[in-house]
Write a protein that binds this DNA or RNA. Structure first.
Length: 754
DNA sequence: TAAAGTATTCTTTTT
DNA sequence: GAATACTTTA
């Protein structure tokens, strides 16, 4: 029995799986099989030590990871484990709070709303203007960050101490912000963690209930926990302290949302008896990939050195590629993928293209569409953030929690019912004067009570409140029917026409509404509050459907925990990776390094690092420099062009350096640059061929061997020339200046007759 | 009140 | 250059 759970594991992995009593800290390098260890450990505890499945709590980083882990454990044990608790901190807390809010210990109902960043932003703005704070001088976003940071440290509004002027504004805003949230029966993401931690800390009976329930607590990606999460683990772990955490300090990439990789050190202090297990063998990558990654991460201070090793010695060199622009970067990658696919006989799904910021995905997508290559995009403008989806979800939220003022204000006049700002204010004031909650006021309106609004607004408000009442009734029976009623009675499809500028936009929005309907149909087993919590807590990465054969496009952050045979990391430029916002903060710069490390270690076989010479930012074109991180990669591990690697001897001939200058290209050329119309690509949809042959190059003006003259570089010989994005790119070996890559459209090359 | 026009911010990263 | 916030106009 024991054998099959330990089969194929190395001694360290086996030790981790079978550790019985007390706290365990597993420090695991990338690709060391830590997910496998966690999965096997759960199975082992259930089968070999007889722990009932519902006494186990396993925390993962994403819901997708949770689903996968549950699947594997059930596979190992050959049956369903109904009571097994696996999920993210947020989803576990949200569920716990629904139960306990119903029990009345919290100032919340179990139908509480969960606020996303947009909702938070709205509340903060409202609060700041109430406090007469100039939002030009004090950015709401910064106030929100400060509030969020406080919550992650479990500091309540009462306990918040201000040290300076800004701090005082934050303190006052925090007090009001939290008051508003409670009034609205709403929690933000941070509240889910903070309220759970405080609830368990301050209420003995509740705490004991969960402490008794959870005999074993397991946490993955421990380096990305914040203070609130750490405290949750500590509390739930008592009294047995069977706390099993797995992490890698080098992969900590979420400090910006309060994660503190020092929790790993804290753990060692708080549990001096903890067994520490190191997993250093990498089963994923080639030696070359691993050496590259190590070269990058070794430059970070304050880390526990790990002796990572693999038995996959050698491997393909890391290819470094410069492109002229982000368009050409995408085109080059698309071409390369087709080549590799032929060579390696891989499917599209074996390739991943990663980037630092979501905005970078656009040019890549366009290139892939042009190449007819199937891709799937993780994240981007999230489905749930689309206007039409947010509107309809907002209705559902209001049905679920009619005290949510934010949501009420969002949809009361959507589609237009003649209820303007003034009427809304009158209505809310009236409710307040009569001491009615929003829910009660809406009920009164539905009953036809005289309202302090006139004309169209009065009728609109009555219609609206009656609609809500009817929908609530229907939703309790059948959510999908309620949804259909909602779109029908609000004339939402007509409204979509009104708010859209083009026919395509209408279609796209209608498709999104249909997609939302599909999600509701799929989750028909869930109650409304559960459905909404689910919808609020889905991670970008949770939507990755790996059953389709397509190239994966994702941010470096989303790539955590994944692996691919071939990985492209794009935009490896100073200002992007590392991001310019981190230049002045060494701590943040170190995190950028870890981010690159995470990206590099996703690759199993081949790694490509690309950067563009120029890139469009905020709508205008800027020149960029290859990332400073290139300086740290030993040149012998790479192949391709990178000035930072190749050093001074080639720097004199640095591609483009003196050729494009800082001038704009002639407009006739930039006209040809305009991207072709993008054909909508169904997200996760069918792959359309993708086998289109690489376009045969159009005829070029310059031919290899031709002698040319340049005003600055003198005489030279054409090496090669090709048409790229409407312009001709000529490589010339100059007698004095060395090899240069020139744009034919404005380099003014004169053909010589020699 | 709604529509149309103008100004401004925005890009780190995400539960 | 897109999305939103804010202002002006009908």
């Amino acid at each position: 029995m024991v054998e099959d759970l330990l089969a194929g594991l190395n001694p360290q992995q086996a030790e981790a799986v079978t550790a019985v009593e007390g706290p365990v800290l597993v420090l695991a390098g990338p690709g060391s099989g830590k997910t496998r260890v966690l999965t096997h450990r759960i199975a082992w505890l259930v089968r070999e030590t007889g722990v009932p499945a519902h006494h186990l709590l396993s925390v993962t980083f994403t819901n997708k990871a949770a689903a996968e882990m549950r699947g594997r454990v059930e596979q190992l044990l050959g049956g369903r484990l109904a009571g097994l608790q696996i999920g993210t901190f947020h989803s576990i807390c949200a569920r716990l709070l629904r139960v306990e809010a119903g029990a009345g210990v919290l100032p919340y109902g179990q139908n509480y709303s969960i606020y996303d960043t947009d909702d938070q932003q709205r509340v903060v703005k409202g609060v700041l203007s109430e406090l007469n704070v100039d939002t030009k001088r004090v950015q709401p976003g910064r106030v929100l960050n400060a509030i969020s940071a406080a919550k992650n440290e479990l500091i309540t509004p009462d306990e918040f101490r201000s040290a300076d002027y800004f701090g005082e504004i934050v303190r006052r805003a925090y007090v009001q912000y939290q008051k508003r949230l409670v009034e609205n029966n709403a929690m933000d993401f941070d509240d889910l963690l903070m309220n759970t931690a405080l609830l368990l800390r301050d209420h003995d009976d509740v705490r004991e209930k969960y402490q008794q329930r959870y005999e074993y607590v397991l946490v993955d990606e421990f380096q990305d926990t914040n203070q609130a999460q750490y405290q949750l683990v500590r509390i739930l772990g008592r009294p047995q302290e069977n706390v099993f955490v797995v992490g890698d300090e080098d992969q900590g990439i979420y400090a910006f949302r309060g994660a503190d990789y020092r929790n790993v050190m804290q753990f060692r202090k708080d549990y001096p008896a903890a067994k520490v297990i190191l997993l250093e063998q990498n089963y994923r990558s080639t030696q070359v990939v691993l050496d590259t990654a190590r070269a990058i991460i070794d430059k970070n201070k304050h880390r526990t050195p790990k002796a990572l090793f693999t038995d996959r010695s050698g491997g393909a060199l890391v290819t470094v590629q410069e492109a002229y622009s982000e368009q050409e970067e995408g085109e080059w990658i698309a071409r390369r993928i087709e080549e590799l696919r032929r060579q390696r006989k891989d499917g599209y799904a074996d390739f991943a293209v990663m980037y630092r910021t979501n905005a970078q995905s656009r040019a890549l997508e366009e290139a892939f569409v042009r190449a007819g290559m199937p891709y799937r995009l993780v994240g981007g403008v999230g489905f749930y953030r689309r206007r039409e989806v947010k509107d309809l979800i907002a209705y559902l939220k209001l049905i679920n929690n009619p005290n949510d003022r934010e949501v009420f204000e969002r949809v009361v006049n959507v589609p237009g019912r003649g209820i303007g700002e003034k009427s809304v204010a009158n209505f809310l004031d009236w409710a307040q004067n009569k001491n009615l909650t929003l829910a009660e006021a809406l009920e009164a309106a539905a009953d036809g009570v005289a309202l302090p609004v006139v004309g169209r607004a009065a009728k609109g408000l009555v219609d609206f409140s009656q609609l809500l009442r009817d929908l609530r009734f229907m939703a309790a029976q059948n959510l999908l029917a309620a949804f259909d009623e909602l779109t029908a009675r609000t004339g939402y499809h007509i409204y979509l026409n009104e708010i859209s500028d083009t026919a395509e936009q209408v279609t796209e929005r209608q498709e999104n509404v249909q997609a939302l309907r599909g999600v509701i149909a799929e989750k028909k087993d869930l109650a409304l509050d559960e459905f909404l919590a689910d919808a609020s807590l889905v991670a970008e990465i949770d939507q990755l459907d790996s059953s389709v054969d397509a190239v994966t496009l994702l941010t470096l952050h989303s790539a955590k925990g994944l692996e691919f045979p071939v990985v492209f990391i794009t935009g490896v430029e100073d200002g992007l990776l590392p991001h310019s916002r981190t230049f002045s903060e060494p701590e943040e710069m170190a995190e950028e390094r870890r981010l690159l490390y995470v990206g590099l270690t996703r690759a199993q076989d081949e790694l490509y690092l690309t950067y563009a010479f120029r890139r469009v930012l905020y709508g205008d074109s800027t020149l960029s420099t290859p990332s400073r991180f290139f300086d740290d990669i030993p040149p012998e591990l790479t192949t391709g062009l990178s000035p930072r690697l190749r050093g001074a001897q080639q720097r004199s001939g640095y591609k483009y350096e003196t050729t494009w200058e800082r001038e704009e290209r002639p407009s006739s050329v930039s006209g040809a640059f305009a991207s072709p119309k993008i054909i909508a690509f169904p997200p996760g949809g069918k792959a359309s061929g993708g086998s289109r042959p690489a376009p045969a190059g159009p005829p070029t003006k310059y031919q290899p061997g031709m002698r040319v003259y340049h005003t600055k570089f003198g005489k030279g010989t054409v090496q090669s020339s090709k048409v790229i994005s409407g312009d001709e790119e000529v490589q010339v070996r100059f007698e004095q200046a060395g090899i240069k890559l020139l744009s034919a459209s404005f380099a003014n090359l004169v053909v010589l007759d020699e």
